[in-house]
Nucleic acid binder design. Sequence first.
DNA 1: TTTGAGAATTAGGCTAGCCTAATGCCCTGT
DNA 2: ACAGGGCATTAGGCTAGCCTAATTCTCAAA
Lengths: 231, 231
Amino acid sequence: MNAAIRSPQPPLTRSVEDYLKSVFHLTSQGGFATTSDIAEMLEVAPPSVSGMMKRLSETGLIEHVPYRGVQLTPQGRRAALQMIRRHRILESYLTSKLGFDWGDVHVEAERLEHAVSEKLIERMADALGEPRYDPHGAPIPTAAGEIEEAELVTLAETAVGSSVVLQEVGDENTERLHYLAEQGLIPGVHLTVIDRQPFNGPTIVRLGDGTTRVVGQELALLLFCRSIDGE
Amino acid sequence: MNAAIRSPQPPLTRSVEDYLKSVFHLTSQGGFATTSDIAEMLEVAPPSVSGMMKRLSETGLIEHVPYRGVQLTPQGRRAALQMIRRHRILESYLTSKLGFDWGDVHVEAERLEHAVSEKLIERMADALGEPRYDPHGAPIPTAAGEIEEAELVTLAETAVGSSVVLQEVGDENTERLHYLAEQGLIPGVHLTVIDRQPFNGPTIVRLGDGTTRVVGQELALLLFCRSIDGE
DNA sequence: TTTGAGAATTAGGCTAGCCTAATGCCCTGT
DNA sequence: ACAGGGCATTAGGCTAGCCTAATTCTCAAA
């Protein structure tokens, strides 16, 4: 007889959507998302997070273990995946239909994802041919809420001598993305790991066209690769 | 030395954008927008409007004459026209590029207009070839903030025997728009006014294809026409 | 010229989200 | 076993926007 039970789906606010997305990303490797990690990701103060976590666990979107952290409930996960689908479809659409640069789309999508209707997203997805990856190579959840989980390894971890395909660029910084694109380090490119300097030094790779690149550790950690050795 | 003077452009909130748009529409025939008209248009209580009007006149976006009403300042008008441009470009884009129905685009655009960047709007406008009218025939303000002001007359006011072109449909109700489209009463259509029943009765028109339509007064008041007699 | 209906405003209160300062909990290192 | 650092939470406050109830203003009609 109380509101929480009766109301089926009070639409989520922008803030709530952002918190859910953060928790999803922070728990993608399993475990709990901590208050301070969420606070840092959303650029708010930790007490703001504590307050929101309380609200969200009351509405059943997250599970909160005080002083430990939070995890998404199935319902929260569904909502988070929906937001991520929106975000990645938007990025894809802006890139391929409106000529946006892959370094710029993140910010734009971040604002739009809270305002687009389901219908618009599906129209965009349709116009794009139901893409499976966004411009950065990240998998796009299906409308049903399924997301591909690939076993990827960062370029910094690859074995010297191995061959990989750059699958996903885990970054959203405009300048870094511009630089990477200039270097030809974009999803889908084939890389052969030629060498790696010691003490967290750069990795040297050969691209498909035979040219080589020296990739510092900071960037190498953002380049998620799929091995193609054994296949 | 105070904040209002120093800060160049504190970005407007969604609410503020909506209020400015309302005031623009309510003052388009000149005069003042009243508190209760704004309240009705935005579906809020009159005191909410009074409060907002106070804020907006303090920030220089409107001119408030207490107990009389409000008007936009040049700065407020600029902001309002920018929102209207966004709205109409969005409607146009959704209609022609994503297959939305002209009856549905209003709601969608209403949500998106607060979230899109200037850059995205200009990309859309570009992709559309800088359209001058939205799907309902309403003029789209230029990026510079100019808007066409046409002398239009509603179909209910046209002289029997005259010839007109349906220029703009002043409605945003989905069902009515669907009905009008079915009847072929869409912007650009050529109409000859054959007859009008007395006592606010319907207007009978002939379309370009020779078929006739009986248009009740309620709808006829929404159909803005341009005369083509004298030309 | 007064009066009263109707519109506008002021008074006072609520929620969502944010903040800082104060307090509480947990765990590791001695 | 416990002291202290570090993270989390609670306490208390703020703004934007909304609300209802009470008050004030305006103007037209008697």
